[in-house]
Amino acid sequence: MSAPLRLFLLAGLAACAAASPALAQSRATVADARMDGDADRLYQDQNGAFYLRRGDRYVPYAGRVEFGRAVLDRQAAAAPAAVPAMSPPPAAQAQQSRQAALVQPEASGDPALSPIEAAKAKAVLRAPDNGPIDYARAYGPVEDDVFPVRAFDYKKMNPAYLRQEIAYHGPYEPGTIIVDPRAHQLTLVEEGGRARRYGVGVGKQGFSWSGTATVNSKQAWPDWYPPKEMIARSPKLASEVDKLQSGLGVSGGLRNPLGARAMYLWQGNKDTLFRIHGTLEPFSIGKSVSSGCIRMINQDAIDLFSRVNVGTKVVVLN
């Protein structure tokens, strides 16, 4: 990655696509598409991708679009086969049993998948490590993933921002993610009065947000699509993006600011444009430097990703 782009990302402009929830929601458009006797509605995110709602989750839609409107046919409207995510820990199964995990079509086992797509599908199903937290192992190199993740020098990090198992007796139910921007900590509530806590980086002044959202989808090594306004402000960034499936962006990989994992936060049927994701700058954890997204050390993002399902409630405190 070039030095100018690295500075640009560290400035907090690269992590997210929006400055505030209000702005984010105003950019997420909804397109209606109906057929005779068919009341299916398509939801469109900021990247132009369409989704069909199936109960409490959204599944990608790859049907036709004509004259700026989506055209539903009965074959395309059928939800693609989804592979369930790895079962949550036993303590969380009761609360999450009704939450089907949304996995992108590349996880369907299609033999025509590229090696990268097949590796991403396998990464989505990675089992969590439920043993005692050994920092040397927890933050060691991850060599069996889609891309190798370097070891993180946890000895240089404030211990308050390292992964911990803690007691929890708060008001939120097991399976809930709680983000405390002031403390720069994210907590996953578990059964039995316990929780798992991680350090995070959050939005800088003017880019912070609070409220309740839902994990609508999960992606391993996701592509990143900076908004057009961001690209326009940075000619150097314009030279770094490529034409991808959903627009101009950076392919998932070692130079992608979303890191090894991303969980996409929606409110109702709208993409908030905020994410919980890994980062290229692990030592920004514990600081307020992003454009509103919640960034984690890549090893922590992988761990959290393996413990939550689509439908998980996320509460960002004020």
Rank of each mutant, 00 (worst) to 15 (best):
L265C: 10
Y161T: 10
P80Q: 03
A92F: 13
G131K: 07
D40T: 15
M1W: 04
D180V: 01
Q99R: 10
I285A: 02
W209H: 12
R163N: 09
F305W: 07
D303H: 08
S290H: 00
V202H: 00
D73C: 00
F283S: 06
I178H: 07
E191K: 10
Y51P: 07
G63N: 07
M263K: 14
K270V: 09
K287Q: 07
L42A: 14
Q75V: 13
P88W: 01
V59T: 05
T212Q: 11
P60M: 07
R34P: 12
V149R: 02
G292P: 12
Y58A: 02
G311W: 05
Y135D: 15
G292M: 14
P105V: 09
A260V: 15
Q245C: 00
V189K: 02
K155E: 12
Q164P: 09
R53M: 13
A127Q: 14
S239C: 00
L72W: 03
G253W: 03
R150G: 07
F67E: 11
N309D: 11
R53A: 13
E190K: 04
S97W: 05
D271S: 13
S234Y: 04
F207L: 08
P90C: 02
V146L: 01
G249M: 06
N269G: 06
I294S: 11
V142Y: 10
L258D: 04
A220K: 09
K155Y: 08
D32Y: 11
R27W: 15
P282R: 12
A79V: 00
V241A: 10
A18P: 08
D242R: 09
R27M: 12
G63T: 03
D145T: 02
Y264T: 09
S87P: 11
A121Y: 03
R196Q: 09
Y135R: 15
P4Y: 13
A91E: 14
G286E: 09
L280H: 09
A151K: 03
I177A: 03
D36A: 14
R54S: 05
Q185W: 05
D153G: 07
A127T: 15
Y161D: 14
P88E: 08
A31Q: 14
I133S: 10
F67M: 07
L162F: 01
V149C: 02
G252I: 01
P4A: 15
A107M: 03
D32H: 12
S291Q: 12
A24R: 09
Q46E: 09
S20E: 03
P21Y: 09
L244Y: 09
A183R: 14
S234E: 10
F67C: 08
Q299Y: 11
L188H: 06
V315S: 05
G68P: 04
P115R: 15
V189C: 02
N47K: 08
A62T: 04
A107K: 01
N309Q: 10
A101F: 09
R41I: 13
Y135V: 12
A14G: 15
I178L: 10
S26R: 13
Q25G: 13
L7F: 01
Q95E: 08
C16E: 00
P89D: 08
A62Q: 05
V310H: 04
Y225S: 05
R126A: 14
K313Y: 06
F152K: 08
P90G: 00
Y51T: 03
R233V: 04
L23S: 03
E229M: 01
S251H: 06
G12V: 00
K156A: 14
P174Y: 04
K313A: 10
A49P: 00
G311Y: 07
V149K: 00
A81W: 11
I294G: 12
L23I: 00
P282W: 08
Q205G: 05
V71E: 15
I285R: 07
